[in-house]
Design a protein around this nucleic acid. Structure first.
Lengths: 329, 329
DNA sequence: TTGTAAGCGTTATCAC
DNA sequence: GTGATAACGCTTACAA
């Protein structure tokens, strides 16, 4: 590998001068500038970020921890995070937890050892160990999707959005409304969206049959299963189903269609998240749009903002959402 | 930041001893081992990969260049690449080209400056500048999806797969078959798949009407548009459409359904890529599965294999594919 | 079994 | 304007 020293030698200058040239710091005469430029071009020299950051204490790398990369939400978030970060000369180093909470912590350590300048965490489960690990961090961290005390966060208004969607069913005079959620361990998606649903039902004066409240995972298959469970729970069928993710909703739709139900004639169904395909399936899925792109952008901007500041101010941003009414309701 | 020196001091040892302990290299007595262990635990010390790799000349980081992260194919590939790499103690640093060929080169430089141990390139357009830049690389590079002379590649059998799919239409006695491709700049997706289509048509003895050969981008909207163009091109309508990506196919389906065509009754349609949703849209999309997960895995294994070897052997792997017949044909 | 010291490729300080 | 030189945090001969 060619180093700054060799460039210096070839250009008849010292490495300090080359460094000054490289970083536009301090004087370097027009003449030597030309010489250095030529040598660098002809050798194809690229300075080692490695060595640079050992010295400067900043790596221009942001760690991004995601639960899974192959979901619409994650990939959209990472994509928009990357767009902003790249503009500012940062790069992303990825850490995938594969939905394993322990890995969240391991990854936090890993990123620390890489001396990242900041961390963005697409959070799923929040546990005390995680929080403690975060508190030990010396670099700023921004969490996306889950509220973490003492940490800057970009949040969805999970509660209110779920409530709104349920109310929408109410307005359409649905009475028999089923719910498919996920583990309440996941506070945002599991707990808050369920709470929104329950509170809305309460305000609507509707009865919530526990048999019509199911729990699924984050995959299509389990949405299908949950719908099956609900449909087979009793004689009567719900006339509406609210699913806390689009994936679950699509799995559920699959079951319903397969069993001859008309959507939304027999059963109305709504999802959450406005996945790219929700618009293109038939019937097009009514869902909640949480503006992921914007959330990613905000997270990126927030982390950049926090880097370098000695006193990190804690910010909490709640993203706007909107209900997208399509054909499934 | 706490350093190895401070650990050494606290543990009453020298930094070399601590280093030996850390890396299990050379002797460390049981006693000092215990002491060091305790200090590390109590301080939460994490060695700086930064400094380490400056010395050892390996970063345990692989650069991954993707055209866009927010597509099914990319995110699945990156996900499986990451799974394998993480197992082996590697991490991924992402570089997104946003489909901009110039950025491919800029990113190559960027990754070089980060001293990555290897690079995986999800290639789209291959141009001479790119190839030259790759040749200048000192680290191994594995390309995914496009053939690049002199480089290890993981390929799809784009040509044969497209041919097979077209033949499938032929077997079903379709005669009026339309084609929606992408720019032939993209050799794999644009050129080879089109060639496969054309050759199959030729072998089937079918006429290819240029009016029924359209070009789209990589988004749903342009699939919709391309279908519109074809449908409005002349009085007669095709009875089958082959699209070179699922996204395009879904956009096209959208147009057809919207205009009252029955799929596959009036028009049969097939996509390519087996996107996660292709199974869940209605009618379920017939498509080609290129086993992305496996491809990502192979790419990761290949790059690990090449790291450290002085003589990098050039391998070319063609992934198996299969046609998934569903309801749209 | 342990410690000293040099070196990895930069930048920053300071003297010239 | 420029160039020694130390320092960043680690590993690795080599010496003890």
């Amino acid at each position: 590998m060619i180093t700054i020293k060799e460039i210096a030698k070839l250009a008849n200058a010292s490495s300090s001068t080359v460094s000054r040239y490289l970083n536009d710091s301090g004087y370097v005469s027009e003449e030597t500038r030309k010489r250095i430029e030529k040598v660098i071009k002809s050798t194809g020299y690229v300075p080692s970020e490695q060595a640079k950051s050992l010295r400067t204490k900043q790596t221009k790398v942001i760690g991004v921890i995601v639960p899974r990369l192959s979901t619409d939400t994650s990939s959209r978030l990472v994509n928009s995070i990357n767009d902003i970060l790249a503009e500012q000369g940062y790069q992303i180093i990825l850490a995938n937890t594969n939905l394993n909470p322990e890995k969240e912590i391991a990854n936090l350590r890993l990123l620390r050892s890489r001396q990242v300048d900041g961390i963005i965490l697409l959070a799923t489960n929040i546990n005390p160990t995680l929080i403690k690990e975060i508190e030990n961090l010396t670099v700023p961290l921004v969490a996306l999707g889950q509220e973490i005390p003492g940490i800057s966060v970009i949040l969805n208004d999970d509660y209110q959005a779920a409530k709104d969607m349920t109310k929408l069913f109410g307005e359409q005079s649905h009475q028999d409304i089923a719910f498919i959620g996920v583990s309440e361990q996941d506070r945002a998606v599991g707990h808050l969206r369920k709470k929104g649903f329950l509170d809305a039902m309460n305000e609507l004066g509707l009865y919530v049959d526990p048999k019509w409240v199911a729990e699924a995972g984050f995959d299509l298959q389990s949405g299908y299963q949950a719908m099956k469970t609900i449909a087979e729970a009793k004689r009567q069928k719900p006339t509406a189903v609210f699913a806390v993710t689009d994936t679950i909703a699509i799995g559920a739709m699959h079951y319903l269609l397969e069993h001859g139900y008309d959507i939304p004639g027999d059963v109305a169904i709504a999802g959450t998240g406005n996945s790219r395909v929700s618009e293109y399936i038939r019937p097009a899925l009514t869902t909640i749009d949480f503006s992921n792109e914007l959330a990613g952008k905000q997270a990126a901007e927030l982390i950049i903002d926090q880097i370098g500041k000695k006193e990190l101010s804690i910010k909490k941003v709640v993203m706007p959402y909107s209900i997208i009414e399509r054909d499934s309701v």
